[in-house]
Design a binder for these strands. Structure first.
Length: 598
RNA sequence: GGUCGGGUAGCUCAGUUGGAUAGAGCAACAGCCUUCUAAGCUGUGGGUCAAGGGUUCGAAUCCCUUCCUGAUCACCA
């Protein structure tokens, strides 16, 4: 079905040709939504055609308007204000459009075909020495939502996670456990594994700081103290033993990591995100080293006298980048090269998207060039989906100062607050404890997710826990509430024995607001498509809010179920049902559940 | 200092390929529960779109300069 816009655009082209004998392409025609304060649905900006018409803007607009009214069936009326031609689309066109939407169960979503492009999305990417925090929450929500949006645009999607499971950081936790916690397990401590390991990491840092203080007290400089630290020396030694494959160390490492993974799994599950394939750096970093050495052999990279390996990117406007240390060990970049290679060996990836914070913009710029130099065709095409930091009203998050917001605590807090507010409002009165708990979960997590996703990813954002759980305004609960109310109306209609037709008759009158609602509703497909190219869940979020707000404002004042005119009642129920469907589909693109009642 | 973001109402944010008088929400104040669910709706006040210049019929949007702010420029990940 050609959309109304496409149909009218076509007519405008013929019009320009006939009236002014000039060819214009479709993208020269600016057909946009008419602003609220003017009558009409679609507005044509005629300024670009003045050159062809050689007449005043008003006169040109009038001529085009008259032509369209005569030749284009969907245009019922027009008015001209300055250089703007406002077109009113006929009511039966809108009803036809609603019928079309109503006939499509998954309206707005593109089905995935066998020959669809495959896009891999990497997100989350935690370290195994501490639990997930607020920064990860934004990352996880963006990554998951992005995957859903890409699927809705007809892509095959593989969600992946690269776990940074090796390195000095996990050795610090392991060492602290050996020294001050031998024998403790998550079960014994009554704690999630990731939190337990995080505690030992903090414990290491505490003892390390104390040691530095003591060394500085006897006259050593900061640098000398750091160099002499026994604790840090032991941690480094442990890393060396790990790399050498020491059985005991490896076994401890596996045990402790398994605790962390169990903890992560719980957090991911509650957050509602998942992965199709998990990579571990302990399994990919050697591959990167091989690739770098191959690069040296091919003259793409070069080795210095001390044995370290570098890439010279000055020709690309960047500087020189280290790829292997003098002792032959690999760095972050090396691992990412290895991981990229393994992924492309595993899957026929057409596009690779990395969801990683904007502090790594430079890293991905370099990675792209390095992969390209190594001959990987996908290097240049990789996408770094970069997002800004999450700050608190009090200022920046700093793990060392203990101002980190833990992901588990945060979710607990949101759910608890949702429960308290619901209870206070009497919303839970007629529910079983299980139902009440589920609603609290859906609403609490929904408000958190929506609050984070509605913001343009590129921007740094302030997360205000108090405001986020505000149940008014542009929030998840407001949308969930409207959805629940529509569902309630539909349930009651069914209970009253109202049977909805599969299609509405085309010849009855609609109010202007209802026509606008259909227009807004029909934009869903376009928004999803655009979000796919722009990679922005925020686009979807703000669209849903607009739609829901518009619906609420209009339908708040009268009772659909008491409508006397049957056709009008059917129309309003069908419109409501389709808005509910679109809201549900849109929220699901954001990874947010909608409740049947609340 | 180099590179890359960001700067829109007191606060949090929208603002489509440049289009009409720049929009929401929060906060403040004033109304609305015999109504399909008041987690809602209605109304009022609130702006030099960081500043200056340029491009044109037309700029929050594009270009240049300046200011503020964030990230990055590690043999950390």
């Amino acid at each position: 079905m050609a959309s109304i816009e496409q149909q009218i655009t076509g007519s405008i082209r013929s019009c320009i040709k006939e009236l002014y004998n000039a060819e214009v392409t479709a993208d020269q025609i600016q057909l946009q939504k008419t602003k609220k304060e003017f009558t009409g649905h679609l507005t044509l900006v005629v300024f670009p055609f003045l050159r062809q018409s050689k007449k005043s803007p008003e006169q040109t607009a009038h001529e085009i308007g008259e032509y369209l009214q005569a030749h284009e069936s969907s245009v019922a009326a027009f008015n001209v204000i300055k250089g703007f031609l406002n077109l009113t689309v006929s009511a039966n066109c809108w009803i036809q459009l609603l019928n079309d939407i109503h006939a499509q169960p998954s309206y707005g979503l593109v089905p995935v075909t066998d020959d669809a492009k495959l896009v891999m999305i990497e997100y989350s990417s935690p370290n195994t020495n501490k639990p997930l925090h607020l920064g990860h929450v934004r990352n996880n929500l963006l990554g998951f939502s992005l995957a859903e949006i890409m699927k809705a645009n007809g892509y095959k999607v593989v969600k992946t996670n690269i776990v940074n499971d090796r390195g000095i950081h996990i050795c610090k936790s392991m060492l602290a456990w050996q020294k001050w916690g031998e024998g403790i397990t998550p079960e014994k401590a009554g704690k999630k594994g990731d939190h337990l390991i995080g505690d030992f990491y903090v414990l290491f840092d505490k003892h390390y700081k104390q040691e530095l203080k003591e060394l500085e007290a006897v006259g050593l400089s900061r640098e000398a103290a750091e160099a002499q630290s026994v604790l840090m020396g032991e941690a480094r030694e442990m890393l060396r033993q790990w790399e050498a494959g020491d059985k005991e160390i490896r076994s401890l490492w596996e045990t402790m990591n398994s605790w962390v993974y169990a903890g992560f799994a719980e957090t991911y599950k509650r957050m509602g995100v998942d992965f199709d394939k998990i990579y571990y750096e302990s399994e990919t970093y050697l591959e990167g080293k091989n690739e770098v050495l191959r690069g040296v052999g091919e003259g793409v990279f070069y080795a210095r006298e001390d044995g370290s390996v570098w890439a010279d990117l000055t020709a690309d406007g960047l500087d020189e980048k280290l790829l292997l240390r003098a002792d032959g060990t690999s760095v972050y970049m090396t691992q990412d090269i290895g991981t990229a290679k393994l992924r492309f060996d595993d899957y026929p990836i057409d596009q690779m998207i990395y969801v990683v914070g904007n502090e790594q913009n430079y890293h991905f710029q370099v990675l792209s060039i390095l992969l390209d130099k190594l001959g990987f065709g996908f290097g240049k095409g990789l996408t770094h989906f970069s997002y800004g930091m999450v700050e608190l009203p009090e200022g920046k998050m700093k793990s060392r100062e203990g101002t980190v917001v833990d992901a588990d605590d945060l979710m607990d807090e949101m759910i608890r607050t949702a429960h308290e507010i619901s209870l206070e409002l009497g919303k839970l009165d007629e529910m079983t404890p299980e139902e009440a708990q589920d609603i609290s979960r859906v609403v609490g997590l929904g408000s958190l997710k929506y609050f984070i996703l509605k913001v343009d990813p590129r921007k740094n954002m302030t997360f205000n826990p108090k405001e986020s759980i505000d149940f008014n305004g542009n929030t998840g609960p407001f949308i969930q509430y409207t959805y629940a109310r529509i569902r309630s109306v539909l349930r009651k209609a069914e209970a009253q024995g109202i049977v909805l037709p599969t299609a509405l008759p085309l010849d009855f009158t609609l109010s202007e607001k209802e026509e606008n609602l259909i227009q807004l509703l029909s934009n869903f497909a376009g928004v999803v498509r655009e979000a796919g190219t722009e990679c922005s869940p925020a686009l979807v979020a703000n669209y849903i809010y607009d739609l829901v707000k518009e619906y609420n404002q209009f339908y708040h004042d009268f009772s659909i179920l008491r409508e006397e005119n049957t056709v009008l009642q059917h129309f309003r129920l069908i419109l409501s049902a389709n808005i509910a469907n679109v809201v549900k589909a849109g929220m699901s693109l954001l990874g947010i559940e909608v409740p049947e009642r609340m």
